[in-house]
């Protein structure tokens, strides 16, 4: 099952109502190429799951979507990624407002060493989204409610965010991200550090968030991909092998590699 030269993605990589469009994206770490000509649409208000074995480039691809790879010196990106038909890698593009539009939730919960309130309030504060304390309180409450954390923390908003449990911390991070009201949320294995109960809560949350946001989620759990996503993209060694509606991918995969992966023959 070696790498296929110039593989053309099977299935339906393009969407009718795309929010994000990636075209011929190639990513290099120094000399090493990590992603090969990936073209993929992420539709508005859909949850797309990126799956594949470790090191296949799915996280790298995800981090390209809000230019988080800029922080890595040796990382070089070719091709274009369009957010609402605007190339985010255009020279005049400023990453600060871009990241306000495309938020990110990381693999490990990473709340700031500040209070719960300040964690959620940080984004609105730096972007100047609110002007009064009352508005900020409202944004914090709303974000925590949508993240399903409000009832658990409303009595201790000024307690440290790092004192919460792992699952609560991750929901705090999600609340922090949606407080900025982004258009797209990228999630990089958001449940890999959580127990099944916390995972279930986050998955439920993702389902609710879909109404307002476009979500791309990287996951190692195929059950999770099946549960939360509408489309699934399978990456293999830096190539996008197949993109199809999730139920199709898990029942009748087009490509032999996809089939091998989801049936557990490797990965």
């Amino acid at each position: 099952m070696s790498i296929i030269e110039n593989h053309k993605t099977d299935g339906q990589p393009f969407s009718e109502n795309p929010k994000l469009k990636a075209r011929d994206v190639r990513v290099f770490y120094g000399e090493k190429q990590a992603i090969f000509d990936v073209s993929l649409d992420i539709g508005a208000n859909e949850v797309i799951a990126l799956i594949g074995p470790s090191g296949c480039g799915k996280s790298t691809f995800l981090r390209c979507l809000n230019r988080m790879n800029d922080t890595i010196d040796i990382c070089r990106i070719e091709g274009e990624i369009l957010l609402d038909d605007e190339n985010i890698y255009a020279p005049k593009m400023d990453v600060v407002p871009l990241r306000a539009r495309v938020g990110m939730v990381f693999q490990k919960p990473n709340p700031f060493p500040k209070s719960i309130y300040d964690n959620v309030a940080y984004g609105p504060r730096i972007h100047g989204l609110v002007h009064h304390r009352d508005e900020l309180d409202e944004v914090v409450e709303k974000s925590l409610q949508r993240a399903g954390l409000w009832n658990e923390v409303k009595d201790r908003l000024h307690a440290p965010g790092t004192g919460l449990s792992g699952g609560q911390q991750q929901r705090l991070c999600i609340a922090r991200t949606i407080a900025v009201d982004p258009e797209v949320i990228l999630m990089d294995e958001p449940c890999s550090a959580l127990d099944p109960i916390a995972t279930a809560k986050i998955e439920e949350l993702i389902d609710e968030l879909r109404e307002n946001y476009t979500i791309a989620i990287v996951t190692h759990s195929m059950q999770q991909a099946a549960r939360v996503s509408q489309r699934t993209a399978y990456f293999h060694l830096g190539q996008l092998i197949e993109v199809n509606p999730t139920d199709l991918v898990f029942t009748t995969p087009e490509h032999t590699l996809t089939e091998a992966y989801i049936t557990g023959r490797f990965g």
Binding site: N66, M68, T71, V96, P97, L98, R99, A100, G103, M104, F106, K108, N110, P111, F112, P113, Y122, G123, I126, H127, C173, R176, T177, V180
Partner: peptide, 12 residues
């Protein structure tokens, strides 16, 4: 991770 969190939120 703290840097990433802040950058991801759009901090300069």
């Amino acid at each position: 991770s703290i840097r990433e969190a802040a950058l991801g939120l759009g901090a300069s």
